[in-house]
């Protein structure tokens, strides 16, 4: 049996190899995969609040004394290594809608992990609708990559009328971030 196999093996090999030789693969270059770049754009809602004039009315003498409240929240939408590698640019959009007949000054503060201030966006809310767009280009993007907390300091500016628990109106904040990614093959 072995002899027979030997006798015919050149024949088998011929057929087999002719198939493989006739077939070919035309100029393909798999190294192209190294140049793969995905540029996705991600929109994410950030902070929002709804402040009622009636609540502000609990602040005594709010027509003469400047009064401020602040809150800070951790904000890690993407993992640090992912951002570090892939985030190219970012934009923050803030929209204040104010139906309280008073002026507010808002400061949005970006902090790193150790509460060091990275950036401050100051917005004076002196009309019923105020929008602000703050962009971080490639040279400034490190601030966003390092950001771990976002805080808002909201100051009620002295003025008239004085607000009381029966006052009507509200101050709304809506905000979102647009993150421009550039995801490479490596």
């Amino acid at each position: 049996m072995l002899l027979l196999t030997k006798k015919y093996s050149p024949y088998f090999l011929f057929i087999l190899s002719s198939f493989f030789m006739l077939s070919c693969v035309k100029d393909v270059d798999f190294d192209q995969a190294e140049t793969l770049k995905i540029e996705s754009v991600v929109d994410v809602s950030l902070l929002y609040f709804d402040l009622q004039a009636s609540q502000v009315g609990f602040i005594p003498n709010n027509d003469v004394n400047p009064y401020s409240v602040q809150d800070t929240t951790k904000l890690e939408i993407f993992s640090k290594p992912f951002l570090e590698e892939n985030l190219k640019e970012a934009t923050f959009d803030f929209e204040f809608l104010n139906s309280i007949p008073r002026i507010f000054n808002a400061k949005i503060v970006l902090y790193d992990n150790a509460y060091n201030e990275l950036d401050e966006i100051e917005i004076l809310v002196d009309s019923p609708k105020i929008t602000n767009t703050t962009s971080y280009n490639e040279t400034e993007i490190q601030k966003i990559k390092n950001m771990a907390y976002m805080g808002i300091e909201l100051m009620l500016m002295p003025g008239a009328p004085m607000l009381d628990p029966n006052s009507s109106g509200e101050l709304l904040l809506k905000s979102s971030g647009t993150f421009f990614m550039s995801i490479d093959a490596d």
């Binding site: 809602s45 902070l47 929002y48 609040f49 402040l51 609540q55 409240v69 809150d71 808002i152 909201l154």
Partner: peptide, 9 residues
Amino acid sequence: LEGINLPFD
């Protein structure tokens, strides 16, 4: 999810 609500009230 609409984001993070800050409870200023």
